[in-house]
Amino acid sequence: MKEEIIIAGFGGQGVMSMGQILTYAGMKEGKEVSWLPSYGPEQRGGTANVSVVISDKTVGSPIIDSPSTVIVLNNPSFEKFEPLVKAGGKLFINSDLVTKKSERIDIEVIDIKATSIADKVGNPRVAGSVILGAYIEKTGIITRDSLITALIQVLGVGKNHLISVNEAAFDAGKNILLENV
């Protein structure tokens, strides 16, 4: 088992933390993991992305050329990363923010109105967690428990009031996927 995930969006959308949550969760489950952010000028233009590897074996390159999963939260990220998804891979899209449509038939595209759903559970800013919920439901790569443990760790004491709304977002993401099936 090896998942190579790229999460991309605007700075401030929580891209880095989403990656961190997955990485922590993988580590908690005893898997080999790595987290590599884009940094510097790339970030300034608005788009930020993070590469996460979760694997049973030692992580070779932390740099991902052909991701098995891509999560995009804005149009520029869609343009940059949609073509890179490995054949047979998955593309998660926040379709509230991304207007472009994928024409690829060799990958699975999962459109989620993540911002609207997040709004419903109480905070539009937890859209990322909606997608993470759907992502783990879809791939089974890590358990919900690990995701929650990781969330608590990443939020830290300063933001622990946000735990429950993120938890609700995870579940809403999971449910939307089940409904769509």
Partner: peptide, 9 residues
């Protein structure tokens, strides 16, 4: 930069 910026357990 990769080694400096990346996270790993």
């Amino acid at each position: 930069g990769v080694l400096g910026q990346m996270m790993e357990p």
